[in-house]
Design a protein around this nucleic acid. Sequence first.
DNA 1: TGTGTAAATGAAAACGATAACAAGAAGCCA
DNA 2: TGGCTTCTTGTTATCGTTTTCATTTACACA
Lengths: 345, 345
Amino acid sequence: MAFTIEDVARLAEVSKTTVSRVINDNSNVKSETKVRVLGAVRELGYTPNSIARALRIRKSNVVGVIIPRGIEYVFSDPFFPELIKGITTVLNLHNLNLHLVMSNSESEHRQAYSNLLKTKHIDGVILVCPRFDDKQYILKLRRASLPFVLVGRFPLEKVNYVGYDSKQGACSAVEHLIRLGYKQIGFISGSFDLIGGVDRFEGYKMALERHSLEYDSELVTKGDWTREGGYEAMCELLNKAKVPTAVFTANDQMAVGAVKAIKEKGLQIPKDMAMVGFGDTQLASYIEPSLTIVKEPTYEEGAMAAEMLVKLINDEEIKEPQVMLETKLIIRESCGSKMAKIMKG
Amino acid sequence: MAFTIEDVARLAEVSKTTVSRVINDNSNVKSETKVRVLGAVRELGYTPNSIARALRIRKSNVVGVIIPRGIEYVFSDPFFPELIKGITTVLNLHNLNLHLVMSNSESEHRQAYSNLLKTKHIDGVILVCPRFDDKQYILKLRRASLPFVLVGRFPLEKVNYVGYDSKQGACSAVEHLIRLGYKQIGFISGSFDLIGGVDRFEGYKMALERHSLEYDSELVTKGDWTREGGYEAMCELLNKAKVPTAVFTANDQMAVGAVKAIKEKGLQIPKDMAMVGFGDTQLASYIEPSLTIVKEPTYEEGAMAAEMLVKLINDEEIKEPQVMLETKLIIRESCGSKMAKIMKG
DNA sequence: TGTGTAAATGAAAACGATAACAAGAAGCCA
DNA sequence: TGGCTTCTTGTTATCGTTTTCATTTACACA
């Protein structure tokens, strides 16, 4: 069996308390004793039992990360790994462990939540990509007075989150098209159960408004974040009386589907139809033509969310409880902007 | 503060022991008492403190999943999410929690391991994609007599793993090309610090041998799993005196890079150069032409590894400690096999 | 009615650590 | 030397469960 603090104490001929002191704060222990204790620790290969410690100090050094059910369709490409990497990097720095909760159905999701709240073995929670209907769960977290941070903006007072400015990002994408001279700009939206879906739509409208272009619902189709959805949405747009000359899609997956539809129709990108996507998938840079996109700061989101949670757990003050990161427009071939640049120059 | 078993006991006017019995095994409790206890549990919204329980029963219901350092380059696309999904689905079924360890450097990796082994708060470990030099850690796990399962084949006696047959998969890819009539088949390998890198190379050679084609080192270049590496490796192949008419790449990322090199050279796929990749990335299906690939059974790997670990933890017998899953050849456009099929028919 | 067995319950110990408190040793100053 | 403070150490309680063991109650049977 593994050795306990008692074994160390016996070997070093001191009390458990002294051993504990040496291991933890080192306060007021004669250096001679300290040496003896550390020697015993080394000799036995002792490490504290983290569970016993967690029970006593009421702190487990574990944070839960909840990935919502059925979220795969948003997890285009490197989102998930990137986010987790951002989170773990920070957690590792603080010697915190990551407890990953991934649920594949609504009922699993509900159960995961209540387990997390009730079993009391978690110091805090990071909730990834909350949907509107996660509000109930978020309120539960709050009532349980468990520190938590959302990854993704959420429209609730005084809730801590790290998000990126989807609306602004979408707006900049559309403005990019407008600057290039496009006027009939279509939009393939995502679903509206995700905050990002709504924000991107608003960003689209904001850009139009800023440049005094009229919003025309004929140019807008609702997608569902998937490639197939993007394909169908684009087909729909192409069959309308008023066909856009440029399209902004709410994510990359749909953009890829849309590209397929455009090509099948015999149209060329960007000559006949310019495109901007949203996301940070490899896909976007590898299809032909490579897609101009609005890039999400995924790694940073994860890292900052983790940092914020660490502060919450340590009862430090949060200066900025609602962080909005900037998106970045990555210009590639799908808008013909290189040509445009030459024209400008 | 949260309620404890003592509060429930007081409310139900029984002892803690009885409450514990009701919650756990239900043995020998009068149904009348049981009702009273359950009522108290509900009234207080009591759930057991999992840490206290873990301390007492020496079982935490947590399994660690270790993702090696610097592995991103192997994590083409949906590998990581798919694998984790496979793992969590099974763990959820058994009410086990997932503790994710992701290390971004060798030192973090080493530390993560020793933490995991020492802090004794974990019932078992799943180690993803072990590299050859992980052997030391694997031996440590074994010495600690902590149940563990590897995801990915590992050449060590009596070690439990779930892998897929990389060699056979590679072989079938190359045989596919051979069947289509290609004789000068090039190979862009991965690095050899991963077992899969070696296996794929062997599969390549095995296919040649089976069909009495001579192995020619002129047709082989070493890549590094990345797109850039694939690009450069392909350039190298194209500049040799003896240029292959078909190429098998050890993963998709490199295939994509290779495609780029081929196109830049003005060659057409599959007319001038056929291609087969390895992996299960979206990328492969979306570049032009879509890539024929050998698909890894990622979800299944995760699920089966988790199942095996659960059995190990429960001291059940493992009938098959070393599972090799089958890969699947997905035929798309990059080999011109449609034409070939017509010719056959 | 007494006896033996099974069912139902509870008291106390244990899991392995830390915290609160107490107390002895040592140093300082008058 | 006595009294005070500071340093160092140990004893005991505690975190919230489960387990062991003992005890009480219920029931069947002679």
